[in-house]
Amino acid sequence: MFNFFFNPFAPPPPPQYPPFGLPRMPPFTPGSGGPPLAPPPSKVPNQAPYKVDPGSIRRCRRKYTYIWLKNGDSFWFYPTYIGKKSISGYRWVGVWWVYYGTDLKKIESFVCV
């Protein structure tokens, strides 16, 4: 049987997704490793001369932490992972939190709140 509605020059049909739509990221819940639900404190703490290593900064996991980098940058940070050589979590950019990671060698000092 011949199909009168078939057009060989038409674009292909869109891919078929599951009936419930595209896969979604699970929602963040407090303590799940996602960003904090509130902005950091408004007051910047005084810089402390802490030696930076995985053991010293580990106590700051999932706490508001102010970080000073050796290049002169400083910012609020909410660490969710602390490894032997690196740290990652969420950096405050003035309006919201963005995922960020850096090498521990780049951190000059830090203060947990």
Rank of each mutant, 00 (worst) to 15 (best):
L37V: 15
T29N: 11
P39A: 06
D103H: 10
Y78Q: 07
T65Y: 04
F2K: 06
T29I: 12
G31S: 07
G33W: 00
A10H: 06
P79I: 06
I67N: 02
V113R: 05
K85N: 15
P35T: 08
L104C: 02
I57N: 00
S88W: 02
P19F: 07
P8S: 06
F5Q: 03
K84W: 13
L104M: 04
P36T: 11
F9K: 13
L22N: 11
Y99D: 09
P23M: 04
W68H: 08
V95Q: 10
K43A: 14
K105E: 14
K51N: 15
G83Y: 05
F77H: 02
V44M: 05
T65A: 08
N46K: 09
M25P: 15
N46Q: 11
K51C: 15
P26M: 12
G72E: 08
P8I: 06
F75I: 00
F4V: 12
G55P: 02
G101T: 08
G94Q: 02
P41K: 01
I57C: 02
P27M: 13
T102K: 00
K85M: 14
K85D: 15
V95C: 04
P35H: 09
R62M: 14
S109R: 01
V44Q: 07
I67S: 05
P79C: 05
Q16G: 09
P8C: 05
P8K: 02
W92A: 08
I82K: 04
P19S: 12
R24S: 15
P13T: 08
Y50W: 10
S86T: 15
C112I: 00
K106C: 03
G34F: 00
G94Y: 01
V95A: 09
S88F: 03
D53S: 07
F110E: 04
T80D: 08
D53Q: 06
V111P: 00
W76V: 02
